[in-house]
């Protein structure tokens, strides 16, 4: 259990409730916990082993009184193989302005996020305790070979749809889920759209126009009404930036 507490200037903020909760969890559930991350006054992350993920739900609900199931989701930590190719021209412009080299994105490594991670996919779930009003975000690595973790539906039936969504969007299976099938997508849909290597077709087929399709802003004080009068009144002696082709 490394001390991954946040930046030093916030270190003096003491979050007794979350620290105590973290201690309680590490004491009782220590075997399963790989890592944790605490931002005092903000939030708490714990990362459990893939095998323990399913049981963590029961543990948090029954032992720590986290009765409220908030959501379950997943992250694909692989950097997008498309790099910035799907960005708009304007984004590249902005990147250049911001001093960020557009090309060096290729070198980007698979990140890990708070509390670390070893695999490409991670599942994230969040539960709340309505008595202490604390929430905790649970993370678990999804084994790269089987892409399967335990289901939360036994503890929280509401996890059903969330897991089905992750199943279709990332291809992650949940062992013990009563009916794992597509939620949004048609049954015969191929691929897992939220994976980073699934191309965003709209941007592949046609380059994202970004600012290109925005008409150039007319020069100031030249916003002509159809009959050629300036809306400002009779004072038509506007700066002569008028496009000569437009007037009359």
């Amino acid at each position: 259990m490394t001390d991954t507490t946040d930046a030093p200037e916030e270190a003096e903020v003491v979050d007794e409730a979350r620290t105590a909760l973290l201690e309680a969890i590490t004491d009782e559930w220590g075997d399963a916990i790989v890592d944790h991350h605490l931002i005092p006054g903000k939030d708490l992350w714990i990362r459990v082993t893939s095998e323990a993920f399913g049981d963590t739900a029961d543990y948090l609900r029954d032992r720590q009184r986290f009765r409220y199931f908030n959501w379950l989701s997943a992250v694909d930590w692989m950097p997008s193989p498309f790099g910035r190719s799907m960005d708009a021209e304007v984004d590249k412009l902005i990147s250049a302005k911001a001093g960020e080299a557009v090309e060096e994105e290729e070198a980007e490594e698979a990140g890990t996020g708070y509390a670390g991670g070893d695999t490409r996919f991670q599942v994230i779930a969040r539960v709340n305790n309505l008595t202490t009003l604390l929430g905790v975000t649970v993370k678990a690595d999804v084994p790269d070979d089987s892409l399967t973790v335990g289901t939360w539906t036994k503890a929280f039936p509401g996890s059903d749809w969330h897991e089905r969504e992750m199943f279709e969007m990332y291809g992650i299976s949940f062992a013990g889920h009563p009916g794992l099938r597509n939620l949004y997508l048609p049954g015969d849909f191929e691929g897992h759209p939220m994976r980073k290597d699934f191309p965003l077709l709209a941007r592949i087929v046609k380059p994202w126009p970004g600012i290109v399709d925005v008409e150039p802003m007319p020069p100031l004080a030249n916003s002509l009404s159809p009959d050629g009068e300036t809306p400002g009144g009779e004072s038509a002696d506007a700066p002569s930036t008028t496009n000569p082709g437009d007037s009359q």
Partner: peptide, 25 residues
């Protein structure tokens, strides 16, 4: 749930919407 990797774009945004959970019952 916003995951940032320090760029201009979010790396991942999980949208927890109310109706989705409300309807799951």
């Amino acid at each position: 749930y916003v995951v940032s990797k320090g760029g201009l774009n979010p790396f991942r945004v999980k949208i927890r919407s109310a109706s989705f959970s409300n309807m799951s019952i």
